[in-house]
Amino acid sequence: MSDLLGVAVLGAGHMGADHIRRLDRVVSGARVAAVADPDTDRAQRALAGIAGAGVHGDVEAALDAPGVAAVLIASPGPAHEEALLAAFARGLPVLCEKPMVPGSEGALRVVEAEARLGRRLTQIGFMRRYDAEYRRLKATLDEGRLGRPLMLHCVHRNVSSPPDFNSAMLIDSSVSHEIDAARWLLGQELTAVTVLRPRPCGRAPEGLQDPQFALFETDGGALVDVEVFVNCGFGYQVRCEAVCEEGSARIGEDRGMLVTSAGAAREEVAQDYLVRFADAYDREVQAWVDATRQGRVTGPSAWDGYAASVVAEAGVRAQESGTRVPVELAPRPALYA
């Protein structure tokens, strides 16, 4: 046990419980040393069968628990800033689920706090960078044989939205994944956003403008469009097509099991992001554990988390105003050059 990286997991909800399972059963080189959640009963349930981990009702108690050497933040977004700053104060490396911080001002405070430390401690959980299909698309674009990327066409669909989901969350929660993926795939910053809204789907809860269509401009002259539809009813789908000067490349074709019977064929469609991106989450957490044990920090940075928050915030303003909204980033600290 002493050789294993002791991880404090903050949050024992849907995502946090899955990471607790992952650290205990899938990832090598780590163990769950502590769990923090205001609902301590939920935390106890998430730890069922896992020995040696304490349950805490507050973040600081978990960070100060014996054996904790790293932190995985899977609590709701508004709690992330306080947790990140507490981890920084203790010099603890962090894997923080997206959004790093929902608002751009708080996200910038995190960037500035880490920059003052003079070293990176944070990896942000944009797990699509670890998905096999996305990595293959990234490698194809970087090779350059398809020529300069001109456009990305993206689709992001969920079966249904949670009860508390609102229209702004289509951009700052769902489309935030496409925001980071576009920046990473293209190696370009997003500079402006426009959001269009068709008539709401009949399955959308009252007051939720679903689906929506976001159009992003980049500093390299490319365009990125995203269809986000969180009450499509039939499955979880994420697709991306890069259109370049000399060809195109597309991922996310849902090649699940094909069942043929009674004169018909039916192909399975994933119903949940934890199913579609299970391997990506596994690779992401394993890479974080491996790097942390070696004293390194890799993967998406706090700057990437900040940039995603700024773009998403501009997207929400575009959604509300119906106009094109420019994206304005603060100067990038040298730590993230």
Rank of each mutant, 00 (worst) to 15 (best):
S2M: 10
R324Q: 10
R239G: 03
A43T: 15
F88L: 14
D18I: 10
R135V: 12
V325R: 02
T122H: 05
G235S: 04
S160H: 12
F213W: 14
L95T: 04
G187R: 07
Q237H: 04
V259P: 02
V310G: 01
V94S: 06
Y336F: 13
R197A: 13
G221K: 02
Y236W: 06
I251F: 02
D142M: 11
A192Y: 08
G144I: 03
T298A: 15
T298K: 12
G77P: 14
V71W: 08
A12W: 03
G256Y: 06
G52M: 04
F277N: 13
V269D: 00
A113F: 02
F213T: 02
A74Q: 13
A214K: 03
A314T: 03
L215A: 07
P149L: 13
V297A: 05
R145K: 14
E81P: 09
C232L: 11
R119C: 12
R129H: 11
R203P: 13
V35D: 05
S2I: 11
A36L: 00
M169E: 11
A182Q: 05
V327W: 09
T194D: 11
R22G: 12
M151K: 13
G16V: 01
P333V: 07
R324F: 07
P149R: 13
I73Q: 15
D41L: 09
M257C: 11
P66G: 02
M1H: 09
R239E: 00
T298M: 14
L137G: 09
P200Y: 01
F216R: 03
W303S: 13
A308M: 03
V297W: 03
Q319R: 08
R293F: 07
V310S: 05
A48S: 14
P102A: 12
T323D: 11
A204G: 02
E133M: 02
D254R: 05
E227A: 12
R199M: 12
G299E: 05
R199N: 12
D64P: 06
E227L: 14
A17I: 06
S167N: 06
P205G: 04
K98L: 02
I50K: 07
A33H: 06
L5K: 00
D18G: 11
T292N: 04
I171G: 09
L5Q: 02
G91Y: 01
G52R: 06
G106K: 05
S28K: 15
R197W: 09
L47D: 00
S176W: 12
E60H: 13
C232F: 12
G220N: 12
V226G: 07
G247F: 04
M15C: 10
A62W: 03
T122A: 01
V224A: 00
D18A: 14
V55P: 00
I73Y: 11
S161R: 11
G11H: 01
P76Q: 11
V316R: 06
L84Y: 08
V316W: 02
E143D: 15
A222K: 14
L137I: 09
G221A: 00
R135G: 05
P76F: 10
M1V: 08
E227N: 08
R135S: 08
